[in-house]
Design a protein around this nucleic acid. Structure first.
Lengths: 205, 205
DNA sequence: ACTGTTTTGACAGTGACTGACAGATATGTC
DNA sequence: GACATATCTGTCAGTCACTGTCAAAACAGT
């Protein structure tokens, strides 16, 4: 037991590597055959492992498909933590969404994002799982905003703040839907700015 | 074949009756045992039918749990259709949400709604299905708003309108969450009015 | 080489859901 | 009332997602 921390760290790295290998293989299969027509056995076989082992890395088929959003959620929270606490929540959230905007700056990455959104919307059950993940993320962002608001001495109106977060995500979803529909018709950043300007809360949002 | 329309109408009525009988039994079981711990066989047995017949009335266990929202969706669309087309979408949506406010006026009904929301939030998979249903409803309301906008001669900015609908629903969800958390703390109508006033889009929403 | 930990595969089992078929039931005609 | 027909229902077999269990295998440190 020379350095258990190092060993555990290595285990973590290895685990992460296997996870993303599975997620990548799954993504390719989903893009070709669709989510519903692809079985977990298909995915497991394509990475050379048993079905049982797949489920040791992902709790469900949906989780494997939405792995990229798991990392994105952490990025969102990190961005929010990096924003000044006096900033209006609406402006902070716009900066948080830059995570997506920056992802879409690279053309290759943009195509990948579009492909994922395509097979998500093609499967009702996967779409449901996606929406739940977004809901969970909103919850976490809301908690962070409430915490920083009370740390600032101000006591926030929670229902309003919750609605503000939900409204901001509605703007993001609208901008994403736009770029998915009309390819290259409009820049995501431009569309997002326009929509979020139109929806900006009048007071203390 | 004297009157096929009448027969078909009777069949429809009968089918509806069976459906709501199943949905009611399911709701009671879910409220007691929770959604995940209740099997489809449990529900089928409690209404005296086979599992196979259950699935002839509902495509999934989730659908049986969310049956009440199916009817609510139709009510939402009907309300929107009854609103003047010159009205601002935001105001129309607030009137649409009166469907929920009126439901909650009756104390007994309010408790039932609270119970349903309780077991929805207790099950991640059911919550996911609920969110997807709401998403689908937003889509339908958006289409209606786009149609009435273009019928009015004005051509709407679709991304903005989509975000407006999403933001309005975020307000509704926030108000519902509020009444679920702090029982009797605040009237739903009051909370909804306050939140929707704070989030009202500045221009042409 | 030895030991304790972790990872893995094989197996069996549950629960949601579907297709196919045959018997029961109801409806309309004579 | 007898009969033909459309619909409803239960049974059965099968697929797929997912879980618990256990023993073999891969790996770590000594």
């Amino acid at each position: 037991m020379t350095d258990m921390a190092n060993t555990n760290g290595l285990r973590e790295v290895s685990r992460r590597a296997v996870r993303s290998k599975i997620a990548q293989a799954a993504e390719e299969l989903f893009a070709v055959k669709g989510f519903d027509a692809t079985t977990v056995d298909d995915i497991a076989e394509s990475v050379g492992m048993s079905q049982r082992t797949f489920f040791r890395y992902f709790a469900s088929k949906e989780d494997a498909a939405l792995d990229s959003f798991e990392r994105q959620s952490d990025d969102f929270l990190a961005r929010l933590a990096g924003r000044p606490s006096e900033e209006a929540p609406w402006d902070s959230l716009r900066r948080v969404f830059d995570v997506v905007v920056e992802q879409c700056a690279d053309a290759g990455h943009r195509e990948r994002v579009a492909a994922v959104h395509r097979f998500i919307e093609a499967s009702p059950t996967l779409l449901a799982a996606y929406l739940q993940k977004m809901d969970c993320l909103q919850q976490r962002l809301l908690e962070a905003l409430v915490a920083r608001s009370s740390a600032n001495g101000r006591t926030a109106d929670e229902p309003v703040l919750r609605a503000v977060v939900g409204a901001a995500f509605a703007c993001l979803q609208a901008a994403l839907a736009r770029t998915a529909d009309s390819l290259e018709g409009e820049d995501i950043a431009t569309c997002l700015d326009r929509v979020m300007a139109a929806l900006r809360p009048s007071c203390c949002g």
